[in-house]
Write a protein that binds this DNA or RNA. Structure first.
Length: 260
DNA sequence: ATGGTTGTAGCACAA
């Protein structure tokens, strides 16, 4: 089984590329983040023709996550137990389901904006709640996949000195990520040590062309998931502005292969 | 520090 995660930065503006990506890489399950769509807005006709089912959640134009699967979508969960809201407003940042016998959570961790912004505290609170909830599932084959908006190590950032007053590299964010890694393993890092390790490139300043990116999209596997992983890669072709018509997402998909 | 580029319910704001 082949599983992928991709912050698509609007599924409506890139539905053709989603379909092409699924076909090009022979994907069984795709977790999407930043769909920027409510479920009714997600065009599924061609996906249905190709045999994929879609589960999605979205309340407004900013967030939204989805799962696309051709190996079934069962036991769908919108949000995880204890998932915090921001200012009392529910946000579409987590969707779980069982696909092909494996629990997959599509996660869009809050960005945090700036260290002194309320969204930063919300991000830490959100990750702590995910730690608590996910520890309940780690005995089953489960993957926590998505855009984590955290660089766990300096080597995951093209230039840490540029992030002194920014989010993503702060110790509290890293500690929150590492707490979850106590139960789950990064199953991609061993297969993608570098230099093709970055999953996000800012649209500005030709960051992709200069390979100046961040590794912030992760597949964390429970022990019984991780032991089945046979390979992984970052699909940098999908992020390459020169490869396809139209603007790419600012994130590249991450692909993981699982033994049966 | 600033700027640069995408996306959306856009002519402001989030990333």
């Amino acid at each position: 089984m082949r599983i992928a995660t991709w912050n698509v930065n609007s599924v409506r503006s890139r539905i053709d590329r989603v379909e092409a990506f699924l076909e090009r890489n022979d994907i069984d399950v795709l977790a999407l983040q930043e769909t920027k769509a409510v479920p009714d807005q997600i065009p599924t006709m061609n996906l249905e023709i190709a045999g994929y089912e879609v589960a999605a959640v979205g309340y407004d134009q900013w967030n939204g996550v989805a799962l696309v699967s051709r190996v079934g979508i069962e036991d769908i969960k919108v949000g995880f137990p204890g998932m915090p809201e921001f200012n009392g407003k529910a946000e579409a940042r987590a969707l779980g389901a069982v696909c092909g016998g494996v629990g997959i959570w599509s996660l869009y961790v809050p960005n945090g904006r700036k260290p002194d912004d309320p969204h930063y505290a919300y991000k830490l609170e959100w990750l702590a709640a995910l730690k608590a909830a996910s520890s309940e599932w780690h005995g089953t084959p489960t993957a926590l996949v998505g855009d984590w908006n955290v660089c766990p190590f300096d080597e995951d950032c093209f230039d840490p000195s540029q992030f002194k007053n920014s989010t993503h590299l702060t110790q509290p964010e890293r500690d929150a990520f590492f707490a979850i890694e106590a139960d789950y393993r990064d199953v991609v890092r061993p297969h993608v040590p570098g230099p093709e390790k970055y999953t996000y490139f800012d649209y500005y300043r030709q960051r992709f062309e200069r390979n100046r990116g961040l590794r912030i999209d992760f597949v964390l596997g429970s022990p019984t998931f991780a032991e089945r992983v046979t390979g992984a890669f970052v699909d940098l072709e999908e992020r390459d502005p020169a490869k396809f018509a139209g603007a790419p997402s600012d994130h590249a998909p991450v692909v993981v292969d699982l033994a049966d």
